[in-house]
Amino acid sequence: MVIRYDARLNLLVSTKGHPFDTAAFFAMFDAMKGMTWTHVEQPATTALMSPEGCADFGALLFYDVPGLQFRTPNPPDLIEPPEAFKQDFRALLDAGKPMIFLHHAIAGWPLWDEYAEAIGARFFYQPGSYKGRAYPDSGYVFPATYKARPLADHPVLDGLEDGFELTDELYLFDTLEDDILPLLAADYSFDREHFYSAANALNARMWTRDDWDHPPGTNLIAWAKRSGKAPVVTIQCGNDGATFGNPDFRRLLRNAIDWVTSDEAAQWARNAA
């Protein structure tokens, strides 16, 4: 790929920590006109996260799972983020750096509550806590076919006003913050009987829910949020190559990139009520 120093937008795309269809994933960004993208893997991403390190990137897209060392069939080791990273990430939010969190990125840095606060949610691979409250391990199910239903008149949903059908992975969890702007909901039953335990899966017992309890979760699969002074969009879908090639999902993601990097989004994020 040619390095585009003259592109209107250079998107940083961070990965690693969870397997994915690399060819289909990167082809999705190659197909986006009028921008370029740069791929960085964890843990290099963590070292890059500062206003200075990200100065050349118009937005940051996270499709990574930092802070976990998977050890199936044993529980994962949870890693505390470096203090320097915490300070630099806060500085990025205070500087208004646009961010998008995609699919399993919702599970990142499980020991740092401020990271989940920036995203608006957390996927728990094992029972954990957030701001002193205990949570069970989250649920997963795939493939799940559902209708994605718009909840707002918003630029992220341009061209998707009638909703769209998607076959992808869904999570059973809940949003952790109240100050989010709901964008998309999935017409699906978000209860224990339709999902499987993430902790069981990491114990080499995929597709089981025995000894697991979870209250009904949110049906939200996309939302916007002010995090510091930064506009953030979180999209829960994005598991496999079929989704990466889905034209409606591609439109959703490109709309999110265009919106978080817009003057409108910057003003919205700065003018928190």
Score class of each variant (00 low, 15 high):
Ile100Leu: 09
Gln42Asn: 14
Ile221Arg: 02
Trp268Met: 03
Asp213Ile: 06
Met49Arg: 09
Ala152Lys: 12
Thr243Glu: 03
Ile79Leu: 11
Asn74Met: 09
Asp248Arg: 11
Ala23Asn: 11
Ala265Phe: 03
Pro155Thr: 12
Pro66Ser: 05
Asp56Met: 08
Ala152Phe: 10
Ala84His: 06
Gly67Ser: 06
Pro76Thr: 06
Ala148Lys: 09
Ala95Val: 00
Pro43Trp: 04
Pro231Cys: 06
Val232Met: 07
Asp113Pro: 01
Glu114Val: 00
Thr167Leu: 14
Arg71Glu: 08
Pro143His: 14
Ser227Thr: 04
Ala121Arg: 08
Trp268Asn: 02
Gly58Asn: 04
Asp88Lys: 01
Asp162Gln: 15
Ala27Asn: 12
Thr167Phe: 13
Glu161Thr: 15
Ala222Gln: 04
Asp30Tyr: 08
Tyr188Gln: 11
Leu78Asn: 00
Ala55Asn: 07
Val232His: 03
Gly245Cys: 05
Leu78Glu: 09
Thr167Pro: 14
Ala265Trp: 02
Lys86Leu: 06
Gly159His: 15
Asp213Pro: 04
Pro98Met: 03
Ser197Ile: 07
Tyr125Thr: 14
Asn255Thr: 04
Asn203Asp: 11
Phe195Gln: 10
Trp212Asp: 06
Glu165Phe: 15
Pro110Arg: 00
Gly67Ile: 02
Phe123Ile: 11
Tyr130Thr: 05
Ala144Met: 15
Trp268Val: 00
Lys97Met: 06
Pro143Thr: 13
